[in-house]
Amino acid sequence: MNSYSTISPARLFRIGSTVKLLLLVVAVLFFEFAVQYLVRYRVPVPHLLALLVIFIGLQWEETRGAVLGFVFGMLYGLLAYEPIGLSAFGLTLIGFLSAQLKRHFFVDTYADKTVLAVCLLVMHNVAIVIVAWLTLGLHLPLGLLQCAITGIFAAPCFVIFDWLFQTRER
């Protein structure tokens, strides 16, 4: 009896994408923690994890954006010692909305994606501030400077993500 591998190329590609995504999440967390360690609390650090969730929503669809947003948000909340569920809520929201908005607006260039990312980041922060106030009674800062700094990093990050997942048409 032959015992050849039955893993199809499509399945291999999916496994490769998942591994890449996991490594990318670790790299993004490494970047965020490394930059924050360097600057301490002098300036806000870019929220690359939020950009990754927006990218997932834009490239794939709502379900993947929302589910991965929730999972990454939980992980981020645990590591950053935030109130758990706060980032999960925000990232689920933008993961879902980025896919929804792509259906209704023409989002093609990196400039379009950057504008959309900044709008979603502001929405993410506003939603988190409201939810934290409603559920925990905390008056959190809006963090608009962080949105602006993250916006600067948006286009280069989308270029790297596109290159990594080969989602950009040539």
């Binding site: 929302a66 758990i84 569920g85 999960a88 689920t92 929201l93 939810v131 559920t135 925990l136």
Partner: peptide, 17 residues
Amino acid sequence: LFFLLIFLSFLILMAQQ
């Protein structure tokens, strides 16, 4: 699924309160 995840986040936050 989206609303379930949002609801779950709320539940976790309320549990912390």
